[in-house]
């Protein structure tokens, strides 16, 4: 089948403004959008720039807007998006070149919520692992799936308004550690996310839940964090 691929192009060293390039390509309906971009880069225009790494939906490098929705280019198939495809960079982050955006504000927000395991207690008497029951592990299982692709944060209207908002991805990671029975910094993180640019900026638009390529129920997780500030229950 023949597909029309309309790609956002912007080279800050040569262009005053962005433009769209249209490519007509032969494709299988099981081809991924990443395959089409690779084809354009390989055969039409080697200057086309986009991020990719594992190409299997694990590294989260190739999140972009495909027909107006945030997706991973390596997971979106031609048959899912149709034969007229528009590919644009993520919204809310500055475009560096073509489909590449500056991820610094995203990772700056991510770092604010202390995205690492904190437990200063002595090791158990046997000197081995800090054990956890299957139920305790299941409590935060969904939020462990985040791959930091930024599809959720850049689909959020509050983040478009201001990149000071921590964003859904940072809050998902906060959830992952706050509800982990082995972690001891829940209180510290709760105080961080309760700041004005944290939980209060989530207006439950649900865009993040729709955008997440890992199908994490993000809005639900943020709701659980909001309730935790009221009830104090982190179990």
């Amino acid at each position: 089948m023949q597909v029309t691929l309309k790609v956002f192009r912007y080279n800050p060293e040569a262009d005053k403004s962005f433009r769209y390039e249209i490519y007509t390509l032969e494709a299988e309906e099981t081809d991924r959008i990443l395959d089409l971009l690779e084809k354009v880069k390989g055969y039409n225009d080697g200057t086309l720039s986009f991020r990719r790494s594992c190409a299997h939906g694990v590294c989260g490098s190739d999140a972009m807007r495909i027909n107006g929705r945030n997706m991973l280019a390596c997971k979106a198939l031609v048959r899912d998006v149709g034969d007229k495809i528009t590919v644009e960079p993520l919204l809310g982050l500055k475009v560096v070149k073509d489909l590449i955006v500056d991820m610094e504000p995203f990772f700056d927000n991510y770092k604010k919520i202390l995205p690492y395991f904190i437990n200063d207690s002595p090791l158990p008497a046997d000197g081995k692992e800090r054990l956890q029951s299957p139920e305790e592990r299941a409590r935060f299982d969904e939020t462990t799936k985040c791959i930091l692709c930024a599809a959720c944060t850049t689909s959020c209207p509050s983040f478009w308004a201001s990149d000071q908002y921590y964003g859904p991805a940072a809050l998902v990671t906060a959830h992952r550690f706050i509800f982990d029975s082995r972690d001891e910094a829940a209180s510290e993180r709760m105080h961080i996310i309760a700041e004005t640019d944290g939980l209060a900026r989530c207006h439950t638009a649900y865009n993040c839940t729709l955008a997440c390529p890992r199908e994490i129920p993000i809005t639900k997780a943020i709701g659980e964090l909001k309730m935790a500030t009221i009830t104090g229950k982190v179990e």
Binding site: L131, E136, S181, S187, A194, T229, G232, E235
Partner: peptide, 23 residues
Amino acid sequence: MATTKPRILPLTKRGLNFEMLMW
């Protein structure tokens, strides 16, 4: 075997500020 202990943060340690009370 791991034991399940209740994890309820005290009132002053759960980030319950004016922002969240207004929420």
